[in-house]
Design a protein around this nucleic acid. Structure first.
Length: 791
DNA sequence: TGTACACGCGTTTTT
DNA sequence: CGCGTGTACA
């Protein structure tokens, strides 16, 4: 469609956009790549584009699929789109993460995917338990193959769509061959438990599409327009998935990717930056739009970010620019130790509030490691500054919550052994370790699930009456809950995989407005409680389970927790169930079959599995936000503090000697810097205490890479109490290129003669120089002791 | 079965 | 340093 300039100026969807932004919004046919620099109005472009497709092109909302990186981003995008189109239309658009899309598709096409509709989703904790069980079964020592490392290997394989068999074929060294066996056994465990891990969600969806042409066809017809945000952080499996959906015909390929290679920070998690760099090769007809004007930050902040990122070698050249005011120079604070650093941050926060009238909610503190939050928290608390934190120990990872959720998971899917075994004797109900082992052994011997064995424990050898009674009581309890939830198998043969038949209904992918809604699946066969009127609410059900399981009593009597914090957390879980139920009922008000307890429970469990910490962050204006640099992606704050700019921390020590990872660390720093709108402070400390050990630090090399004209250094370390500082530790030591000791300079050493400096790391007495000598090769020397002379 | 203590271990970042 | 796990005891 041909649009005149006048058309555009008059269209409220375009009027306030720049030329490149308009191009991105109005491009309709064929692949589109939007390379959006930080703060270039990407979200605005995406939401306008969706509105454009719906309102101007006339596309049906349910033909649009928008994929975001977090659930929170999805929610916000839906909200912003709803303001442009109607509430109802916005609801019909599929906006979600890759993982929740897959979770829903796998439930919708459970039959074709070879899955029960009520499969469990395993989180990291569940995965570790499953790996441990696999190790046990294989008689492999967990010390040589730590579950976390094994899981990382498995996860990498899955992200590359490499299954156990192929992994085994490719495994050539000792370690890989063992991991191959563990991988295989791990999958068996999951299969038996009817559980999927995060990576399986993607992998199984790809498999579903590959094996069922009719499903793929249906999905292609449904999702005619695909938008993927944060494309630089997609992995191989996600690429394949998106590509499969978008490749209906050569004419179609209505795929729009937005992202910024400079903000790719999830390489360690399998993200493949090549996906975005090679987008144009994948889709030859791609229209590329570059958004390089920044609307977010001051000139100084942007100069710092831009200067830093230019140090990355493997990068498409790009320059960010802004018409915003120059603002204040970026502060670099040198502190004595982390207490002083945190105290300084607290002080600055109060100052910004008093002097600049900036609300607490408009300020944030970023750090590389979650463990660094503690000191900052203490300081803010002492200063009386309210804060919220993207928690390191997530709500759903707390013991008591995992216990409670394990009950719900086991009720929904009794085949789920990890969760069933977790609750078997929690709270203690007379089922000993030995008894549990006996049950498991019997399950293996008879090739049945532990749940099935629980139903007829009399066949398990070596159980006394007490154990038998305990088991029967527990089994009865479980069945009762399943009955209440409408999941009871009733007369269906218990002997032949009853749990596999258990009918929990899927969380439907579509809404009432979709004509392509899947036909309602048969569910809750015959259970009397499928009568809506007589079912308890989800909230009531959760309360019932907490009460009757004894969990409530257990934590009420917990002497190790005098403040009853755990009990309060259980209360919070009940609230979350209620909150979910309210939202869910509103969303599915027209869809009576979706309102059964069984379906609510399944949907609730899915949400719990896929929700992340940062989704819980509320943007209330009342408190300062603390989070990791990774979590900061996609956000912005008028005031930003980044703490811990030290070598080994940012960049992290594991990245040393890995140029690729080093560049990712620089991007991470770049992401943090570009979150700031008006004020930015970077800080480092001279002595940091880690694991109770205080050690001198080396400044982050990134500090040397900042443009001096946009930086103001403050040294707070000198006046502080504590061990005397070295005399030579000057304020600007890390920024100054003193005495001509800069990379590239020629120098003379008393013993090694002439050479050229390749690199300098650190400052003051700890600075190290890497020199290539003409006759002695390359050496690293301590600057202080080397007594170098300019040559 | 529950409690108490010692030891040892680990710490990147997350859907 | 702080947590969780594992072991020894009551």
């Amino acid at each position: 469609m041909a649009l005149t300039a006048a058309d555009m100026a008059n269209d409220p969807l375009l009027a306030d956009l720049t030329e490149p932004q308009r191009q991105a919004v109005t491009h309709v046919q064929g692949p589109l790549l939007v390379l959006a620099g930080a703060g270039s109005g990407k979200t605005r472009v995406i939401t306008r584009r969706i509105a454009w497709l719906v309102l101007r092109v006339g596309l049906a909302p349910w033909n649009i699929l928008a994929i975001t990186f977090t659930n929170k981003a999805a929610g916000e995008m839906r909200e912003r789109v709803a303001r442009l189109v109607s509430e109802r239309q916005a609801r019909a658009i599929t906006i979600c993460t890759f993982h929740s899309l897959c979770a829903r598709l796998l439930r919708q096409y459970a039959r074709q995917a070879g899955l029960p509709e009520n499969y469990s989703i395993y989180d990291t904790g569940d995965q570790e338990r499953a790996v441990k069980r696999a190790l046990e079964r294989l008689q492999i020592s967990g010390t040589n193959f730590p579950p976390s490392r094994v899981l990382a290997a498995i996860s990498n394989a899955k992200n590359d769509l490499v299954g156990p068999e192929e992994f085994a074929r490719q495994a050539h060294d000792f370690s890989d061959r063992h991991i191959a066996r563990i991988y295989h056994q791990y999958q068996e465990q999951l299969q038996k438990s009817q559980a999927l891990d995060f990576d399986d969600l993607l992998m199984r969806t790809v498999a579903l599409m590959r094996q069922h042409a009719e499903v793929l066809q249906e999905l292609r017809e449904r999702f005619q327009y695909i938008l993927i945000d944060e494309y630089q952080d997609t992995n191989h499996a996600q690429f394949i998935l998106a590509n499969a959906l978008a490749s209906g015909s050569a004419q179609q390929q209505n795929i729009c990717a937005t992202g910024d290679p400079d903000q790719s920070i999830y390489g360690w998690r399998g993200a493949n930056i090549q996906n975005i760099l090679e987008f144009e090769q994948h889709y030859p007809r791609t229209a590329v739009v570059r958004l390089e004007q920044n609307y977010r930050s001051t000139k100084h902040i942007l100069a710092v970010a831009d200067h830093l990122i230019q140090f990355n070698q493997q990068r498409k050249h790009k320059r960010l620019w802004t018409e915003n005011e120059a603002g204040r120079p970026v502060q670099v604070a040198v502190c004595f130790n982390e207490q002083q650093e945190a105290g300084w941050v607290a002080h600055e926060i109060r100052r910004h509030r008093a002097q600049d009238q900036i609300a607490y909610g408009d300020m944030a503190v970023f750090y590389r490691l979650n463990s660094l939050s503690r000191v900052v928290e203490d300081a803010l608390r002492n200063a009386g500054i309210p804060y919220q934190i993207a928690r390191g120990t997530a709500f759903y990872e707390r013991k008591e919550i995992k216990d409670a959720v394990a009950y719900l998971r086991a009720i929904a899917n009794p085949a789920d052994e990890v969760n069933l075994l977790r609750i078997l004797n929690t709270p203690a109900r007379g089922i000993s370790e030995a008894t549990a082992k006996g049950l498991q052994a019997q399950a293996v011997a008879r090739n049945q699930t532990v749940y099935e064995i629980l139903q007829k424990p009399q066949h398990v050898p070596g159980l006394n009456t007490r154990a038998l009674n305990a088991i029967r009581a527990f089994a009865t309890l479980l069945e009762k809950w399943r009955f209440v939830a409408g999941l009871w198998e009733g007369a269906r043969g218990l002997g032949q995989g009853a749990s596999r038949q258990a009918a929990s209904a899927p969380a439907s992918l579509s809404t009432e407005s979709s004509p392509l809604a899947p036909s309602p699946l048969p569910h809750s066969g015959g259970a009397p409680s499928s009568d809506l009127e007589h079912q308890p609410s989800l909230r009531g059900f959760v309360e019932q389970v907490l009460r009757e399981s004894g969990l409530h009593a257990l934590y009420k009597a917990d002497k190790a927790d005098p403040d009853q914090e755990r009990l309060a957390n259980l209360g919070e879980l009940v609230s979350s169930a209620q909150q979910f139920e309210t939202d869910y009922e509103k969303l599915h008000a027209q869809d009576r079959p979706a309102l059964t307890l069984a379906r609510k429970l399944a949907a609730y469990l899915e949400q719990i599995s896929l929700v992340s910490d940062q989704d819980a962050l509320n943007s209330t204006q009342g408190s300062v936000t603390l989070m990791t640099l990774h979590a900061a992606k996609g956000l912005e704050f008028p005031v930003v503090f980044i703490v811990g700019l030290e070598d080994g921390l940012l960049p992290h020590s594991r990245c040393r000697d890995h140029p690729d990872q080093m560049e990712e660390e620089r991007r991470l720093c770049f992401v943090g810097i570009t979150r700031a709108k008006r004020f930015l402070s970077l800080s480092r400390v001279k002595f940091r205490t880690v694991f109770g050990k205080t050690t001198p630090t080396i400044p982050s090399p990134f500090l040397r890479e900042l443009p001096q004209a946009s930086v103001a250094v403050t040294d707070l370390s000198a006046g502080s109490a504590g061990p005397a500082l070295d005399e030579g530790d000057e304020v600007q030591a890390f920024l100054d290129d003193e005495e001509g000791m800069v990379p590239g300079a020629r120098v003379r050493h008393a013993m090694f003669g002439l050479g050229r400096i390749l690199k300098i790391s650190g400052s003051g007495p700890h600075a190290r120089v890497l020199i290539r000598f003409e006759t002695y090769g390359t050496k690293t020397l301590v600057l202080e002791h080397a007594h170098l002379e300019p040559a």
